[in-house]
Design a binder for these strands. Structure first.
Length: 260
DNA sequence: ATGGCTTCTGTGAGAAGA
């Protein structure tokens, strides 16, 4: 089974890239973030024509998350149970593959936080705490769990192009990294790091200052798996190809392969 | 360098992203 995550920075703008990418990369599950559109505008028909079921939790202008799958999805849940949030940042579903395996997939768009001294940063920290408590229960309910998305956290200095310049800033601050580490301590594994120990691999590059060409990026999009799935993982790669297209998203897909 | 780009809203210029 192949699963991927991609922050598309507006599905309205990026739908052609998504359809082209799915055509070239036939995978079973794709989680999208920042669709930036209401459900009524979501391109269910175009995705269906491409062979994908889809579930979406969207809103106008900001946020918005979706799960696309070639397989049937059941038990769709929106948001973090018990956490009131106007912002559409989480959607979950159970994927049923052809051999009959059941995998619980959670698509997350973690709060950006803007700057460490902003109110949005405090919201980010509260949000991550709520995610953590909720996941504790979800892991018990669903042993085979994959959490894919834009975490807006670079877990360590290998995941940042210039740690000295970024020290203490948003995306790398100690409190954010501690919150990420607490997710890992629930018994989750950063699948990219199962296969690659070196730095210099990023999933986001700033649009400004030729960030991509100079590889001035951050690895902030992650695929975490629960313990029972760890040894089923066979590869996790960052596909830089879509970042090279005309009018790209500033993020690029991360792809996990598992042999169930 | 409180910048740089891109998207959104909505038709201006400002917010937000990361």
């Amino acid at each position: 089974m192949k699963l991927a995550t991609w922050n598309v920075n507006s599905l309205n703008v990026r739908l052609p890239h998504v359809l082209d990418w799915l055509h070239e990369n036939p995978i079973e599950v794709l989680c999208l973030q920042e669709t930036k559109q209401q459900d009524i505008k979501f391109p269910y028909n175009d995705l269906k024509a491409a062979g994908y079921h889809a579930v979406h939790s969207g809103q106008k202008t900001y946020n918005g998350v979706a799960i696309l799958s070639t397989h049937e999805m059941t038990d769709v849940e929106h948001g973090i149970a018990g956490f009131e949030d106007e912002q559409k940042r989480v959607i979950s579903a159970t994927i049923h593959d052809d051999p009959g395996h059941k995998i619980r997939v959670i698509c997350v768009y973690v709060v950006n936080g803007q700057a460490v001294d902003s109110e949005k940063y405090e919201y980010k920290m509260r949000w991550l705490e709520a995610l953590n408590s909720w996941l504790t229960g979800e892991l018990k309910k669903y042993p085979n769990l994959v959490i894919l998305g834009d975490y807006n956290i670079a877990p360590d200095d290998r995941d940042c192009h210039d740690p000295a310049a970024w020290e203490g800033s948003i995306l790398v601050s100690p409190r954010e990294r501690d919150a990420y580490e607490e997710l890992i301590e629930l018994g989750l594994h950063d699948t990219f790091r199962l296969f690659e120990a070196d730095g210099g691999y990023y999933s986001w590059w700033d649009y400004r200052m030729m960030g991509f060409r100079r590889n001035r990026g951050m690895r902030i999009d992650h695929i975490l798996v629960s313990d029972p799935l760890k040894n089923k993982c066979t590869s996790c790669i960052i596909d830089k190809a879509p970042r090279k297209l005309e009018r790209p998203s500033d993020h690029t897909p991360v792809v996990l392969e598992m042999h169930l």
